[in-house]
């Protein structure tokens, strides 16, 4: 072994180890969340890269499908938008049952508020608006569940501070279920009921485990987004605006 090389190597090794073992004192100086808005500069290169994609999407998205009487927001425990979408789900499920000559037992619908990602704006509604409300590719699913599972669902709704429902009204004392009525009647734990919801919730999403093991489960071949678009177009064909209100479907005392 060349002695010079060896000394150089040991020297480097000591230097390396000394350097690696050094712990530098860290000081956190400051932190902030910087708002990005119209006052922020725009990178033109990035704009140019987005442009062809934007043009493609705009062509598809800017079609006006109807009008809304007001801005519909989704909020817990009950809100105009969650009521509107829950109604759409219920209508679609009822239409499916009639079309397939199935039992006309009550149909409750359930839509998670977290799944409604944007409001329906006041005035003209475009396809884009509905993509923003419902960006997910979720489908409507029809489930048959015994009354006790439906009761578990409503008990859970008390702790999750509400979600979108149609076909039922429910009252809580704090988080505790006081009363729930389906079609103005109390739930019979042994009777079967239909629940229409998204495939996401039917698979136990958003902690809805109690509806996972339905004896009957069928996709009605309709995406949630398509159902909302269809409802708005139907209203528009009849010269009606979209409208929905908080009606006391879910009451927390």
């Amino acid at each position: 072994m060349d002695l010079n090389k060896y000394i150089l190597f040991i020297g480097l090794l000591i230097g390396l180890v000394a350097c690696q073992q050094k712990e530098h004192k860290v000081t956190y100086q400051e932190g902030s969340n910087i708002l990005i808005d119209a006052t922020t500069a725009t990178d033109s290169g990035m704009m140019e890269k987005v442009a062809p994609y934007k043009a493609d999407i705009d062509a598809k998205m800017n079609t006006i499908i109807g009008r809304s009487k007001k801005e519909l927001l989704a909020d817990k425990p009950e809100s105009p938008l969650s009521n509107f979408v829950s109604d759409v789900i219920q209508h679609q499920a009822q239409a499916y049952l009639i079309q397939h000559k199935m039992d006309s037992i009550p149909v409750v619908s359930l839509m998670n508020i977290k799944g409604l990602r944007a409001p329906i704006p006041l005035g003209d509604i475009t396809i884009r608006n509905i993509f923003e409300v419902m960006p997910f590719e979720n489908e409507i699913v029809l489930l048959a569940l015994p009354g006790d599972s439906i009761l578990s669902l409503f008990k859970y709704l008390g702790t999750s501070e509400g979600d979108g429902i149609a076909g039922a009204s429910v009252v809580y004392d704090g988080t505790k279920l006081r009363e729930v009525l389906l079609d103005n009647k109390a739930i019979d734990p042994k009777k079967n009921y239909f629940l229409a919801t998204s495939d996401y919730l039917a698979n136990g999403g958003d902690h809805y485990h109690m509806i996972m093991n339905a004896s009957f489960k069928r996709k009605i071949n309709m995406k949630l987004r398509e159902a909302i678009i269809e409802e708005i177009q139907d209203l528009s064909d009849k010269d009606l605006d979209v409208d929905a209100n908080v009606e006391g479907r879910i009451i927390f005392n």
Partner: peptide, 21 residues
């Protein structure tokens, strides 16, 4: 928002703990 956190590392100090301004 764009989050921003600024840290300084004092390379003469070896105490190593995260300290605050």
């Amino acid at each position: 928002n764009l989050g921003r956190l600024d840290f300084t590392f004092d390379t003469s100090d070896t105490s190593g703990n995260l300290a605050f301004n």
